[in-house]
Design a binder for these strands. Sequence first.
RNA 1: GGGGGAUUAGCUCAGUUGGGAGAGCGCUUGACUGGCAGUCAAGAGGUCAGGGGUUCAAGUCCCCUAUUCUCCA
Length: 877
Amino acid sequence: MDRLGLNQIRELFLEFFETKDHLRLKSASLVPEEDKSLLLINSGMAPLKPYFTGQKTPPHKRVTTCQKCIRTPDIEIVGKTDRHATFFEMLGNFSFGDYFKVEAIKWAWEFCTEWLELPSERLWVTIYQDDDEAFEIWNKTIGVPNEKIVRLGKEDNFWEIGVGPCGPCSEIYYDRGEKYGCGNLDCKAGCECDRYIEFWNLVFTQFDRDEEGNYNKLAHPNIDTGMGLERMAAVMQEASSIFEIDTIKRILDYVCQLSKVRYGKDPKTDVSIRVITDHIRSVTFMVSDGILPGNEGRGYVLRRLLRRAVRHGRLLSIDNTFLSKIAKKVIEISKEAYPELKEREDYILKIIDIEEKRFEGTLEQGLHILEKYMESMESNGVLSSEAAFKLYDTYGFPLDLTKDILEEGGFTVDEKGFKKEMKLQQERARTARKSSIENGWKEEIYSRLSNTIKTDFIGYDSFASNSIIKAVIADNKLVKEAHKGMTINIILDKTPFYAESGGQVSDTGFIKSKNFVLEVYDCQKVNDEIYIHKCNVVEGNIKIGDTCKAEINIANRMATTKNHTSTHLLHKSLKNALGNHVEQAGSLVNSDRLRFDFTHYESLTKEEIMKVEKEVNEIIWKARDVTVLETDMETAKKMGAMALFGEKYGDKVRVIKVDNYSIELCGGTHINNTGHIGMFKIISENSIAAGVRRIEAITGEGLYKYLIEKENILQEINAILKTGDDDIVKKLDFNVKAIKELEKEVQQLKNQLSASSIDDYISNVKEIKGIKYLIAEVDNKDMESLRQLGDKLRDKIKNSLIVLYIKEKDKIVFMSMVDKSAIESGIHAGMFIKEITKIGNGSGGGRKDMAQGGIKDINKINQIIEVIPSIIESQIK
RNA sequence: GGGGGAUUAGCUCAGUUGGGAGAGCGCUUGACUGGCAGUCAAGAGGUCAGGGGUUCAAGUCCCCUAUUCUCCA
């Protein structure tokens, strides 16, 4: 047995199954394409599901893959054990209704013993307890001795998930030798201890479980096998943990080199080293598949992995940003099998860097808050679970960090309470999810249809077609006919209607015959094979088999088409202006405008926007030719075509080429010369998520309308300001300045006015028990000037209580001020206002020296004036 | 999808039971000054995210919306 490297084993496996007439497929993206039930690809067969369920026809009946996978449920354990990892690769061979048990078992054995040269005496197998067929093959055909075939129950060796295809499994184990064993007499394959390691699982999908729980035999059973590449490598290299496998070890060593911490010295730091080693692999691959750190879904998984890695980096006292350096190592090691890593290297490193820096900000904020908490804590105090949880939940500050810092200050934290809060939070989320999970499965009807009907799309060249109605669907059921007033879905044999995809909205239009008129408001496609026209029956009756004329709204299509070609120009121009890290992250193209989301780490400057806009317009004005050609993926890539993250491309791809400027894969509709676009204008630029910007732009007729709108506004302004376009800015500037100056002047005059009238007010001052008091109505004043007047009066009159009021339509507002010496005598403005406003059915309050209040019953003002002396008297000490 | 925060001057942020919008930095002006963020003084700068409500009175309380951060799924 050779000590094969991980990369060698992968290649051997794929080659082996190629010799058995398997088609080698590239690893699918970690982002599931059509499976909404899955967050991330977590097994080798996950991306092939549609082939197993019959939804899609596989390109070949025998397939072999090496699939990148991510699993995070055990994230807390990773680093603490030898085997757990969030990222792993799964080798698999698959049969879609072709070969079955005999071949699957035979080839698995052949590969292990002849290609990998594993000694057969070390191999054990397990089977499902009732699967005698598998036993016969292992025992009779292969020659595995009776005692090395272990029968296991449903829990271990029967694969099923709810309803659907399922079946028994058979696993192959490797015996690492007695020294790893538990010593029990009945220790054998399947034992919990570390002696027997399972590395290959063969699933024989031979049943279909229905809703009543019956297992119905499948006419064409499938084979689905999975072999953990890391586990296999561990066996081949006699590694005691996955972290000692050649490729992974290189990453681990690099972590040690960066942190200057030796591996194997301290169990605590070892955990951190392993966590970083594992997590960075997940992070690098996730980013390369277009996932961005965020607050939900996959983005959140990514963020959590990345931040955990940073956190452990700090535990190793790495204090500068380091993750992207390790990511670079990952790329270097895995680029042969996953060329997308190298292709997007700059981008991947940039995104990781940004997120790591962002996390630093989060930590700083949390630290600030924690310090505040600590200031108000007694020595040896315990931080409440609420406070700790809030730090974690709201500010993203890790608990272990909270603990460490508290410890340094001699404090502790209520961890039990924290866990309780965490549980509550999880339950809240779970119950909320349950109530929203009940949709889906409605598309099933179309998946079945796609086996019998196909729609021919002719809309690239024509706007109308003579078609035949192949299916009519109403209320999610197939019907034979429909009539006026119904909302139905129609499938045609051929159609000019573009179905929504690649961001471009669907065509609208009409389907007509002498018997009926249908208005098409939307068009969607299923499996790229059937086009579903959503329509209202405007007139007449329609039935299957009718011939008809399908016509799209041409003006709409043309406007949309212009916007779509502009989107390509924008994409290229952004790359030119900002750099190669710019990747499309979403787009919407309709007849009104285009919306383009792309990865970029900061807002665009005005200059950048203008530069981008100008470049696009120059291509338009130079009237460059746009050509479309169909080719295969290989050739397209060689031509340098930009392809999108997560976008699925078939064997044949369309390449849209704008002269020598832009070249991009795209299934949308395009004009044949950029001149038709007329003109291009960016109307907004903003952020929609961390690291993702959104640009909205308009072209052609839409832009013309936009200009007219702006012109109208300008004319209105001109009319109001009585100026022409040339002077408008000057005039407006002048007016704004003039208004400010006038306001100032008014304020000054008001002050002067009240100053001059101050003497009048003073002449009305009365006195009781040594306290001078004044109550006066003030005209045409706001609260601000009331206060200023009050200030002045109070400063002028010693030992005083000032009460000023404004009469409004249905209320009176009071303001009261008391000077320092009067306060010493016991006068309290707040209490005073409370007393007098009570009389007039109002309320109020404030401080000793200043208070406000109001009444609703304005007739009570005289009564209030009368009682003032007695209130003052009662307050004097 | 669910929960918890945040949004106040150009920037970083204070703002007590609701009662007079603030600090530091930056900016402008002036004076002083051979020093590493020079010193001192004066000044400009605010739709307290937007909208609605409660109240005599809302930056502050309640509701909605937007943006953003964060946790959970």
